[in-house]
Computed example of a mutant assay.
Amino acid sequence: MKDLFSIAGKVAVITGGSRGIGAMIARGFLENGAKVYISARKEEELNTTAKALSAFGECVPLVADLGSQAGTEAFAKALQEREPQIDILVNNAGASWGAPLDDFPENGWDKVMQVNVKSIFFLTQKLLPQLRAAGSPEDPARVINIASINGITYPKLTNYSYSASKAAVIQLTRHMAVDLAGDNININAIAPGFFPSKMTEYLLDEEEETAPTSIPRQRLGQAEDIAGTAIYLSSRASAWVCGHTLVLDGGAVAQAG
């Protein structure tokens, strides 16, 4: 059982991989022997990250805009042209929007739902042939959807479409997991708590003193936390974990009650 957590030789795709949680997972995968494709909208930032990550393994950047159906399908096609099999798909790309309830705009709803929910469904759908080709009964292909504790507990923020989208990701994970389990594709999700990222940096200035002490584990999430969880969900060790959302938050949801 010494190789239970090995992902060596696997092909992984990570959307939104140029920064934050996506880049953390990408480094963890690369350091553990996987070939990793990362995507993002901004080409310069994507290429800079890929260059830095290439010190740890084979990292391939692909520009993709998952903010539209056409962009999602174009990204899937680019992957299909490069890889006959995909072992791991991490649906990490995300968007958020904040506005008071009385003023929350429709475009702030539609943009977030497109990236956070619709693109997950359709990118996974388009890559099913590659995922099916990679999976086996002993070691299925993996899809990991990045949800959020905001989809589980009250966010204390005016990010209405974001929290709704992440709740949808959790249910979509359950639904698709059951339908695809017989195809040797395991689908699970991770619901991160407070990690330093571009999406949370506006909170860090005002909460860097209080956020760690408000979390039972007394600190923010670190790269090793999210990478280790993603590696577990991608390895033989989790082959019988199917349709679940693993909460990764230092105890914040448990504390919320």
Rank of each mutant, 00 (worst) to 15 (best):
A76Y: 03
E44H: 10
K2F: 12
I190L: 07
I14Q: 07
D110N: 10
V115M: 06
I25D: 00
L131W: 08
P155D: 06
G16K: 01
I190H: 04
V253A: 12
D87K: 13
M1Y: 12
G151H: 06
T72M: 04
A230K: 05
E138H: 11
A211H: 00
R19A: 14
S54N: 15
L131Y: 08
I38R: 13
G9W: 13
G251V: 00
N186H: 07
L4P: 04
Q85C: 07
V247W: 00
L220P: 02
G151T: 08
P155S: 15
L79W: 08
T200G: 02
L204F: 07
A223D: 11
L233G: 11
H244E: 15
T245C: 15
I86S: 04
S235E: 03
T229C: 15
V90Y: 01
A50Q: 00
G33C: 15
D65I: 02
V117M: 04
D249Q: 10
A74G: 05
Q69W: 05
N32M: 10
K156T: 12
P61M: 04
L53A: 06
L101V: 12
A211C: 04
L127S: 14
S119D: 08
L66D: 02
K51Y: 10
T210W: 07
E106H: 04
A133D: 10
L66S: 03
L4F: 06
K35F: 06
R219G: 14
A74L: 03
Q218R: 13
A50N: 02
Y154E: 15
V169L: 03
N184S: 09
S136K: 14
Q80E: 14
E83Y: 11
P100C: 09
L248A: 09
I38Y: 02
L127H: 10
Y162A: 14
E106M: 06
E201Y: 05
F5C: 10
G251N: 06
D87I: 02
Q171N: 14
A70L: 07
A64V: 01
R174N: 08
P100F: 13
A230L: 05
M176H: 09
A147M: 05
L66Y: 03
Q85W: 10
V11L: 09
A23P: 03
N32A: 07
I38M: 01
K166F: 07
I144D: 00
W240K: 12
D103N: 14
V143M: 10
A252W: 07
G193Q: 09
D225F: 00
S238F: 13
